[in-house]
């Protein structure tokens, strides 16, 4: 599965992992990942994400809108090229990028 989500042992943190290409083909799956399960903090784990395009940026913004501005969403373990794309798009203002 290219999108997997798992709650931490205290049920507080929902981690969504994206494997391979993060693009429009994951629109449904990605949305389901944060709608089906709820946490108080969210983490997008990009360790296995090889590429992302602007449709993925759109999906992340939709997630932000749905969960509200106050929910903590972290994007973690980005490879350098992914981090650059996020930085170029000024996503560091809306997400905490580690």
């Amino acid at each position: 599965m290219p999108v997997e989500s798992a709650l931490s042992s205290d049920n507080a943190e929902l981690t969504i992992s994206i494997v391979g290409r993060f693009d429009f083909e994951l629109v449904q799956e990605f949305r389901a990942a944060y709608s089906d399960q709820k946490g108080t903090r969210y983490t997008i784990d990009m360790r296995a994400t090889e590429h992302m395009d602007s449709s993925a940026l759109g999906m992340l913004l939709n997630m932000r809108k749905t969960l509200g501005e106050d929910t903590k969403i972290s994007i973690v373990n980005c490879r350098p090229q992914i981090k650059k794309i996020l930085t170029i798009s000024r996503f560091d203002k809306k997400f905490s990028i580690e």
């Binding site: 602007s54 940026l57 913004l61 798009s89």
Partner: peptide
């Protein structure tokens, strides 16, 4: 603008 979920592709290409 920053909030729109679309139109990010072009600026991405511009920067890269």
């Amino acid at each position: 603008d920053d909030d729109n979920a679309f139109g990010r592709g072009a600026s991405l290409i511009d920067t890269l």
